[in-house]
Amino acid sequence: MKRLSLVLIVALLRVLSVLPYKFVARLGMVVGTVLFALPSRRKRIVLVNLGLCFPEKTSQERQTLAREHFRHVVRSYLERGIQWFGRAQAIRDIVQIESKIDLDDEAAPPTIFMGFHFVAIEVGCMLYSTHLPVASLYTRMSNTALCDLAKRQRGRFGAEMIERATSARKIVGLLRSGKPVMLAADMDHGIDNSVFVPFFGIPACTLTAVSRLARLGRARVVPFVTEVLPNYEGYKLTIFEPLVDFPSECDTVDARRMNAFLEEQIVKFPEQYYWVHRRFKHRPPGMASVY
Rank of each mutant, 00 (worst) to 15 (best):
E79D: 10
E79R: 03
G81H: 03
Q83G: 13
Q83M: 13
F85L: 04
G86K: 01
A90Y: 01
A90I: 01
D93N: 15
D93Q: 12
I94T: 13
I94P: 04
Q96K: 15
I97H: 00
E98N: 13
E98V: 08
S99M: 02
S99L: 03
K100C: 12
K100N: 13
L103F: 00
D105N: 15
E106L: 14
E106N: 11
A107V: 05
A107K: 15
A108V: 03
P109C: 09
P110S: 12
T111W: 05
F113P: 01
M114L: 15
M114Q: 15
G115V: 04
F116L: 11
F116W: 13
H117I: 10
F118V: 09
V119D: 02
I121N: 08
I121V: 14
I121Q: 14
V123C: 06
G124P: 06
C125K: 13
C125H: 01
L127N: 01
Y128W: 11
Y128C: 01
T130Q: 11
T130K: 07
L132Y: 15
P133R: 05
V134A: 07
V134S: 01
V134T: 09
A135C: 12
L137N: 00
L137Q: 04
M141P: 03
M141G: 07
M141Q: 15
N143K: 10
N143S: 14
T144C: 04
D148W: 00
D148S: 10
L149I: 13
L149C: 02
K151A: 13
R152N: 12
R152K: 15
R154V: 11
R154W: 06
R156V: 05
A159Q: 08
A159H: 00
E160Q: 15
E160S: 12
I162N: 03
I162C: 11
I162A: 05
E163C: 14
R164N: 12
R164G: 10
A165D: 14
S167M: 08
S167D: 12
S167N: 13
A168G: 13
K170N: 11
I171D: 03
L174S: 06
L175V: 05
L175K: 07
R176T: 09
G178M: 08
K179P: 06
P180C: 11
M182H: 09
M182N: 09
M182K: 01
L183H: 02
D186H: 07
M187E: 15
D188F: 06
H189N: 09
G190I: 07
I191C: 03
D192C: 02
N193F: 08
N193H: 13
V195P: 07
V195C: 10
F199Q: 01
F199E: 03
F199N: 05
G201K: 10
G201Y: 03
G201C: 04
I202A: 01
I202H: 11
P203V: 10
A204D: 01
A204M: 09
C205L: 06
L207D: 00
T208S: 06
A209W: 00
V210M: 02
V210L: 04
R212W: 01
R212A: 12
R212S: 08
L213R: 02
L213A: 04
L213K: 05
R215M: 12
R215D: 10
G217E: 03
G217C: 09
R218Q: 11
